[in-house]
Design a protein around this nucleic acid. Structure first.
Lengths: 230, 230
DNA sequence: CGTGGCCTTGATAAAGTTCAAGAGCCGTGG
DNA sequence: CCACGGCTCTTGAACTTTATCAAGGCCACG
């Protein structure tokens, strides 16, 4: 089994001795989730955490009326559900596979044990959590201080990394309904704002998923609240 | 100086040996901030983190138009600015003293060194970050999924701990403008909603800061979106 | 070539913000 | 002891942004 191989490639476990890696591999339990399948739900108690090997997982909250807010989308190499383990409480949100995904489950005890044996894992985990806090800070800022066009502009700029010479088009990696949920809005609003952006020639829409950035500076101004759509 | 005494009382450092505590005490630098004084600003690079000894500190974001969103309010025993140290980047937000406050500054190196020497500190710090992530998750949920009356109801219920027999009044511990910023709104809106809550006899207002909860259940329903103000 | 999922568009309504003015409260200083 | 000035808070009216509800269009896949 190449489980060991997968584990050793995960950033969180970089630098662990072969021996420790093997112990982790023994403790880990591989699970496959189909598209749409729930991985855990808010309020369950976390007997361990997951590591994404393949696929994508969304972590989200639901309002009583059924509106969804995506907290983050996690891909290969990233841990999921670790907060419940670390603060010894219940899962604070829901997790669901966005596509067929392969995850590794680590029981709480194995993880705590591992930290105890090799503190460098704790340091790496601290780094992961710090990054996550930083991301949350940005999300809070977006939700509270920006309006939807600004949030969308930030997102688009973040997607288009490096594409800034000849503005080559790119493809949204998630359905628009999901993007709306990530931005804290609803699909209708997202759709309208994309249209307005296109009308002002900030972007060009290409089919259902394709987007080409025409005016990078304009988007940056939007993202910073220095400009508004008419 | 009783600096050592203060340090040993901080949750983050529980369980450290006397020797390690002394090393921390030597590395630490005590600073006093007057009310309103800036402790650090977003974008500066974090050469260390702070620990609140006395007073209260708010951590917040500002929009270009000057609107403020408070991320958290920290009191004695709590660390501030540790994310910048742990993720090795810039401060993601601003920090300011809400009243005259005494803080301890720990240079980055001293902290990293300490973690290396005694992994239990890393574990505690993981716990602190995990709690903070949990709080942020709730804030995101509030901002995105609840409207202001619901957020306010949650806040009030959280303040009134144990006061649930004979509904004794309590006093807001922060000015209303600050509360508005914490809830992601503005003072005018907050004021209106408090009036409406009073009109529906959910609460009773007493002077500028005093509040008495009259209908705990009603507030709980509001907080969960099961009810709305007319 | 139809059916279902996803996306767009329009009309309407609700929630929150902005701007502006005024009320209450408090410490200072005469 | 009272009056002043400044701060915080409240209230009203107009406006903006976003959500809601309801159709209709597009596209892919069987």
């Amino acid at each position: 089994m190449d489980l060991l191989h997968h584990i050793s490639a995960v950033p969180l476990f970089q630098g662990l001795s072969r021996e420790h890696l093997e112990q982790m591999a023994v403790a880990a339990l591989e699970q496959v989730f189909k598209k749409g399948q729930i991985i855990f739900s808010e309020g369950e108690d976390g007997s361990g955490f997951y590591l994404v090997l393949r696929g994508r997982v969304k972590v989200f909250k639901l309002s009583p009326e059924g509106k969804e807010q995506i907290l983050h989308i996690l891909g290969p190499g990233e841990p999921v559900g670790e907060v419940a383990v670390l603060s010894g409480e219940l899962f604070p949100a829901n997790a669901q596979a966005m596509e067929e995904s392969r995850l590794l489950f680590f029981p709480k005890e194995a993880f705590v044990e591992m930290i105890r044996k090799d503190p460098s894992v704790a340091l790496r985990m601290l780094g992961v959590l710090a990054k996550r806090l930083r991301k949350f800070t940005m999300l809070i800022e977006d939700l509270s201080l920006k309006e939807v066009p600004g949030r969308l502009a930030s997102y688009l700029l973040g997607q288009d990394l490096g594409g800034n010479g000849p503005n080559k088009p790119f493809v949204l990696e998630i359905p628009k309904a999901q993007l709306a949920s990530l931005l804290g809005t609803i699909p209708e609003t997202l759709s309208r704002i994309l249209s307005r952006m296109a009308a002002e020639e900030l972007i060009q829409l290409d089919g259902t998923r394709g987007i080409r950035i025409l005016d990078r500076e304009g988007l940056e101004e939007l993202a910073q609240g220095l400009r508004r759509l008419s």
